[in-house]
Simulated scan of single mutants.
Amino acid sequence: MSTQDHADVRVRAPGKVNLALTVGRRRPDGYHPLASVFQALSVHEEVSAWHADRLSLTVSGLHAERVPTDGTNLAWRAATALAAATGAEPAARLHIHKGVPVAGGMAGGSADAAATLLALDTLWGTGLSREALAEIGATLGSDVPFALLGQTAVGRGRGDLLTPALSRGEYHWALGLRDRGLSTPEVYAMFDEIVGGAGGEPEADRALMQALRTGDAEAVGRALVNDLQDAALELAPELAETLAVAQDAGALGVIVSGSGPTVAALTRSRQAAAAVAAAMTAAGVADAVLTAVGPVPGARVLQGSSRSGPARSLRGVD
């Protein structure tokens, strides 16, 4: 929307792909221990914020009609959580412009929350560090801290304990989107039913981490893994054809992103990504396609003065 250009603050935050997602057995608290390697991609959410006398939210862009604009929205929840943590008045006009698929396994809602935390910290002058914002974000969802950090990182625990990963080079992706999303809780429930999870704490794949350190895209493609993929395929069996078409079109590796249903195909170059996207379109195995590059930075202020200082490494585990 054109009024975004005149926002008091505007923040951009990236969607993500899970290069690896290893899932352990469900714990008594209902959560699954995770080891995830995230990469932030050049598909973004933008949150604009204006001073106002109450909290309100509007949405435009990709799948906007499927996004709630009330207290169930993660951006709204981020606003109220930041206000509660800082004593600020929870009043602002927020607008989300979406570029990340809804319910696609790429953490668009988490990007909205991260962008909102940074935007309102700037708008309200609450002056929190990135680490403090991430701690608030972790109460909203396990992917929110990564949307603040960006680049490439290893997530453990519920995925919210982050360690920046050494990564060289650019990675080019073709993304096959589906209009019908998948519910993350349903995917995990199906995972529990058909797989059950490995014992002990999951670990990041050593071959993948080595490939990222050397910038070896072919080795990264071979090492892509998602323990939730079989569960996603059980709920949406048509994704098998999408995976096959992308692989046959020359992708270095193909994976369901997170809990799905977005299919992410790693390719050799920008041109190869466009070719794989065209193949998915021609075969009719995706409702829409995008191309993207990673890794990219986490949430950042595009308009307005940031008071939260430079990005810091978020607390993680070795």
Rank of each mutant, 00 (worst) to 15 (best):
A75N: 06
V67L: 15
V285R: 14
L162P: 02
T126R: 07
S2T: 06
G104S: 02
T281R: 10
P28K: 03
R178V: 13
A115K: 11
Q303C: 09
A85P: 01
A85D: 07
D5Q: 13
G253C: 05
A92E: 04
H51S: 03
A246C: 10
L94T: 03
L123I: 09
A174K: 11
G215P: 10
S36A: 06
G109L: 02
L177S: 10
T163E: 05
G169N: 05
R178A: 15
A103Q: 01
S259C: 09
A78E: 03
R10A: 15
L82M: 03
A92T: 09
A283K: 04
A79S: 04
R27A: 02
P14C: 12
P261E: 12
L148Y: 06
E241G: 06
W50A: 11
S306H: 07
A165H: 07
V254R: 11
G304T: 11
T281C: 04
A223V: 04
S269H: 10
S313C: 04
A20M: 14
L266M: 11
R26Q: 15
P310S: 12
A283W: 01
V144S: 07
L212A: 02
V43E: 04
A119L: 10
P202S: 10
G294Y: 14
A278E: 08
A88C: 07
R180E: 15
S36G: 03
G316Y: 01
F191Q: 01
L228M: 10
V220A: 01
E203M: 14
S308P: 13
T116F: 04
L55K: 08
D205Y: 03
R307H: 12
S308M: 10
E45G: 05
G137S: 01
L233V: 06
A134W: 01
G199I: 05
L182F: 03
L177K: 06
V276D: 13
L182I: 15
F146R: 03
R156I: 06
Q210R: 14
S142N: 12
V301W: 02
K98L: 06
A204P: 02
P310N: 09
E241T: 03
D143G: 12
G157Q: 11
P33Q: 05
V225Y: 05
S36I: 12
G200P: 12
G108D: 06
R268I: 00
A232C: 14
G157L: 02
G294P: 10
K16Q: 11
E186M: 06
A52R: 13
Q271S: 14
T69H: 00
V43Y: 00
T184D: 05
V17H: 09
V67F: 09
E218C: 12
A189V: 05
V256P: 14
V100A: 14
G87I: 09
A189T: 08
D318I: 02
L208W: 13
V59P: 01
P14F: 00
V37F: 09
A275S: 12
L62V: 09
G309S: 12
A103M: 00
T214Q: 11
